[in-house]
Every structure is written in structure tokens, then in C-alpha cells.
Design a protein around this nucleic acid. Structure first.
Lengths: 137, 137
DNA sequence: TTAAACTCTACTATTTTTATAGAATTTATA
DNA sequence: TATAAATTCTATAAAAATAGTAGAGTTTAA
């Protein structure tokens, strides 16, 4: 399941994608439109900024805006930024790989192979869902 | 990601699937073979029993055994028993559906449609991974 | 200089996860 | 029938993750 943070991040990105080009959105504006606690959203937007999904303008009349097209922001990327690995175990993960602690050797991990199949399918599907594709609905 | 509980459940089922037919496995035996804390495993096996995946024999010389073929136990079922919904949000779930609290109306949930696509793909993949398919690796 | 915004760090409360403890019950068999 | 060996059940506890809050600091426009 998605964490609240990931869900809020998606909704915030969706809001930004719906604005006119060159429009800069204040945190409070996004928070109210998408029903997200403002202080929590501040952290999320900072994380999105550090992940190079959004840009910001500081000071009076500042705010946030998309740094890339909604077509180029996928669910897979946002999931990884906030919720981490897409695979069901670290030993089956591409971006968050860690060996199993309780499997003797890696090749003996009985679950790894099956979970890599799941990961491939889920990843493919998640890369197909973009912010732009969600806006259109 | 899978919880420890789900991971342990899969390993326990895998162990049971590897035994001879008619063999009854004691909890301590499974625990040691699969590196699972015994008392934790007791709870997991009870849950698996309540889910009708394993049967048990009480008393001396009792233990656990598979109630169905390894071909008929899928990753999807075990995930649902221990970790719940396969969908990324409750509003996109088949078996654990709940409406979004912060979406005005259901049809207006901006994420629901995309997450249902992910769910369908992930579910299909998870139904393809069975205990038997894992044993063979 | 001031107001309005983002930035940053720390903290807190809640929930979930991961176990552990121990008593109760069941069953085989000596 | 007593005992040992197993499952069953409920309660509890410790640790980790999640969700959210607080407040001071910095930047910018006017």
C-alpha cells in the first residue's frame, strides 16, 4: 500500500500539472485544494524538490512548479522516492537491493526468483502510470 | 514490501511442500529449518490454519501439513492473508475495498483508475507465483 | 523594513510490526 | 491414569515506521 506521504505527493503533483504553464503554486494553495495538512506538505514538496520533480521560488510570491512534464513523472519514481523499493523483498530489488539476512547464500533464497518476476511486472505497470495520464481521467 | 510475517509464512509453506506426503511437521522443526522464531511461527501457522492452507494434528506427535497442493497456493493469497490488499490504495482494492476519505466522490478520486491498472497487473503476476513454483527453483 | 513565502531541524504522538510469555487444551502411550 | 509433547489462545511488550506538529531561519518583492 502507498503511504500517506506518497499519496499526498501524487495529489500535489497532479495539482501542479493542472495549472497553467508559468503558474507558481503556494504550499497553502496546494494544501487546501488537495486536502493535505500544510506542514506535512511542506516536507513532501521539499523532498520532491530534492528529487528534481519540482522547482521552487523562494520569498514573497514564491511557490512550487513542475520541473518536468507530467508525461515524464511516473508512479514508479514517486513510489521509490517516498516508499522505497517496488520489489517485495530487498533481495529482489533493483534500486534498493540488500541481501537476505536469513538466507544462507543468495542463490538459495527460495523467494528471490519469484519476487523478481513480480517486480518486473509491477515496475512495468508503474512506469506506465504518469502524472499526465492521471490528469486526463 | 512483504512483512516478516508474510515472508515467514511463505518459507514455512515452502518447507511443508518439500516434505513427503503424510509427513507431519512440528513447529520447532519448521522453525529451525527456516530460521523463524518458534513462538512467532506458532501464530503464523495458526493463521495459515484459519485460512485453510494448512491442517494440524494436536497433541503428542502432532504438527502441521499442507491442506492443498503447492500448485493451488498463490503468493496473492498469502499476501492477502497477512499483509492485506494487493492494491496500492483501499479505493482500488478488490478484496479490501474502502472509499477514500479525502476524495469528494469516488469517481473523482484522481488516483483510483491508475491504481486499478497496477492492481490488475500485479495481481495477475502474484497469482502466477505458487508455492510449487518456488519449490522447483 | 516588512510581509510572505520557502527551508530546515527537531520533536511528538500514534500505529504497526515483531516478537515473547505463559496458561490452557489435546493426544499418544507407558 | 499420569505424563510428556505437541497445538491453541490471549495478553503483553519492545521496536520501528508513519503521520503530523512546532518553531526558528532564510529568501525575496515591494
Amino acid at each position: 500500500m502507498l503511504s500517506q506521504k506518497t499519496k499526498y505527493a501524487l495529489k500535489a503533483l497532479l495539482y501542479l500539472a493542472e495549472q497553467d504553464a508559468n503558474h507558481i503554486s503556494k504550499t497553502i494553495e496546494i494544501a487546501e485544494a488537495a486536502s493535505i495538512p500544510k506542514k506535512f506538505l511542506e516536507q513532501i514538496l521539499l523532498d520532491l524538490k530534492r528529487g528534481h520533480f519540482v522547482g521552487s521560488k523562494q520569498g514573497k510570491f514564491g511557490g512550487y512548479y513542475l520541473l518536468k512534464s507530467g508525461n515524464d513523472i511516473t508512479l514508479a519514481e514517486i513510489h521509490r522516492l517516498f516508499d522505497g523499493a517496488i520489489a517485495l523483498l530487498p533481495c529482489a530489488s533493483l534500486n534498493f537491493y540488500e541481501p537476505c539476512s536469513d538466507c544462507k547464500t543468495e542463490s538459495e533464497c527460495s523467494l528471490r526468483h519469484g519476487l523478481m518476476i513480480i517486480r518486473d511486472e509491477t515496475l512495468k505497470a508503474m512506469q506506465g502510470i504518469t502524472i499526465a495520464s492521471l490528469v486526463k481521467k
